[in-house]
Design a protein around this nucleic acid. Structure first.
Length: 315
DNA sequence: GACCAGGTGGCCT
DNA sequence: AGGCCACATGGT
């Protein structure tokens, strides 16, 4: 079947941007994505034309949502650039200023992790510094084509617990190993990411043997909390961004950065902008002030452009 | 064979 | 509240 996609849609970038770890480019130039029980082969056969291996029903019911196709990223980029050029005086998702200092909505939009002061979101003359404008403009160009994939929350929970102090290739192999050991086959030599029940069968010692190292008890705790119902991933969907973030932080081994990644990549919360070592470098290139929260509802999308830029270009 | 990786929890002031 | 540091393993 052929799908037409006019909007931003770079398979290469999405498969290699550090948000999904199981997508691969096959020898024939097509890409294979896997999520839950679904496997998709997709190839760009002409500009904006994609050949997909699934049925129309599977595309509409699953993959359209997975690729976040209800959002128009070209439009979002325009908005982001407009804010960069200073035309958008009011950052997304924030109420106009000068009303009242302690405005709850503004404060909520500013808080990325509950610890940061409102201070740095309170825009001075320039919400985003000149250095930041230059950097973010470059980043948007480099990252054009990316989308925030709507991945399985459980898989994101475990994957980003695994991710700490690993590079992307190492995360890939760790996830693949878990799938091989505890998932079930969907095709030959291709395994699902293990469900909470499947992964729950592994003891902490088993997980250490699988190479998780000090993260083994963290993964165990996550599986325990999900299996006991203490962490109900379906219910979490209904929570607002901040409550979701706080709830995720109750899992051992889930700190600010990992919780924000789960919010962004597992729950589609595009206001969350995780700060890792790469983004810290980006922040210093921007003059030392984290520019992402100022993008409000789309902070996570701008962050993803910056992350891609940092990990793929020499800056 | 160093060096570093999409960090975090625990301990210390 | 904020600054160190150990932590296990694998890729480059």
């Amino acid at each position: 079947m052929i799908i037409e996609i006019e909007d931003d849609f770079s398979l290469g970038k999405m498969a290699d941007c550090g948000q999904c770890f199981r997508a691969v480019c096959l020898p024939d130039g097509s890409y294979r994505f896997i999520s839950r029980e679904n496997v998709l082969n997709i190839r760009e056969q002409a500009p904006h034309q994609f050949q997909v291996s699934c049925s129309e029903e599977a595309w509409e019911k699953f993959w359209r949502d997975y690729f976040d196709l209800s959002r128009t990223y070209s439009r979002i980029r325009e908005d982001l650039l407009m804010q960069l050029s200073g035309e958008g005086e009011t950052p997304f998702g924030q109420t106009p200023r000068g009303v009242s200092e302690g405005d709850a909505a503004t404060e909520a939009a500013c808080r990325q992790d509950g610890a940061d002061s409102v201070e740095r979101c309170m825009p001075g003359p320039d919400v985003v510094s000149d250095a930041a404008v230059r950097f973010l403009t470059q980043a948007e160009q480099a990252g054009r084509g990316l989308r925030i994939l709507r991945q399985d929350p459980w898989e994101m929970l475990i994957t980003f617990i695994l991710s700490q102090r690993k590079n992307i290739p190492a995360i890939r192999s760790a996830v693949e190993k878990l799938a091989m050991l505890y998932g079930h086959p969907v095709k030959e030599m291709l395994f699902t990411f293990p469900s909470p029940e499947e992964l729950g069968r592994a003891s902490e010692a088993d997980l250490r043997a699988a190479g998780l190292g000090y993260r083994a008890p963290y993964v165990k705790d996550a599986a325990d909390k999900v299996l006991s119902g203490e962490l109900d991933l379906e219910t979490l969907e209904k929570l607002d961004d901040e409550s979701l973030f706080e709830k995720l932080m109750t899992v051992k081994g889930v700190g600010k950065k990992v919780a924000n990644c789960i919010c962004l990549f597992g729950f589609g919360r595009t206001s969350r902008a995780p700060v890792d070592v790469w983004i810290e470098r980006a922040v210093s290139l921007c003059g030392g002030v984290d520019p992402f929260p100022a993008f409000g509802e789309y902070a996570g999308i701008m962050q993803q452009y910056a992350f891609y830029y940092m990990t793929h270009q020499k800056v």
